[in-house]
Amino acid sequence: MLAAILSLTILGAVLGAVLGVANRFFHVEGNPLVEEIEALMPGSNCGQCGFPGCAGAAAAIAAGTASPACCPPGGRSLAVTIAQRMGVSLAPGGADDPGPLVADIDESICIGCTRCIRACPTDAILGGPKQIHNVLRDACSGCAQCIDQCPTEAMVMQPVPITLQQWFWPKPALQG
C-alpha cells in the first residue's frame, strides 16, 4: 500500500516537474489571434455584428462564439480571410447574399444638413451645409451609421452596382 502511494506520488511529482520546466520553455504569450483578427477588421466600430466594437467582435470570433462572417461591412472577403487564418471552413454564401451594401443619397430630398457627414467614420460623404451631399462609394464602409441621422430619409443602403470590369461568370449550375 505504502509502496503504491509512494510510487505514484513520486511519478506524479517527477512528471509534474518535467511539465513545469517544459511550460517555461514552450511558453506562449497571450492570444495573438485576437489582435491579428482585430487588425483585419474595418475598425469603424459600427456595431452591426452585435458586439461592442471591432475589438469585441475579434475576441468573439477568436473564441469561436461568433462566425467569421459576422461583419457585414467587411463582407465576404473579410470572412474568407479570417476563416483561412483560423483554419475553419466557411458556410458557402447563399444565392441571396446581395454583397456589400453602401450608402446612397436621394438627391431630390437631401436638405444638406451635414448630419450624415459628421456621423460617417470614414469621411465618405462629401458636401457642405445647404448643399446636396454625395457618397464616395469606394470609401463607404457600409456601416449604415448615417442612415438614422438623416432627417429626411434621403439616405438608403444599396448594393454596389456591377460594372463591366467587375462582372464575371456565375458558377455553373451543379451537375451530377
Partner: peptide
C-alpha cells in the same frame, strides 16, 4: 474587397 477594407480601415 480586401483592398476596400484596407482603405476603409485607413480612413
Amino acid at each position: 474587397g480586401t483592398q476596400r477594407n484596407e482603405t476603409i480601415r485607413t480612413l
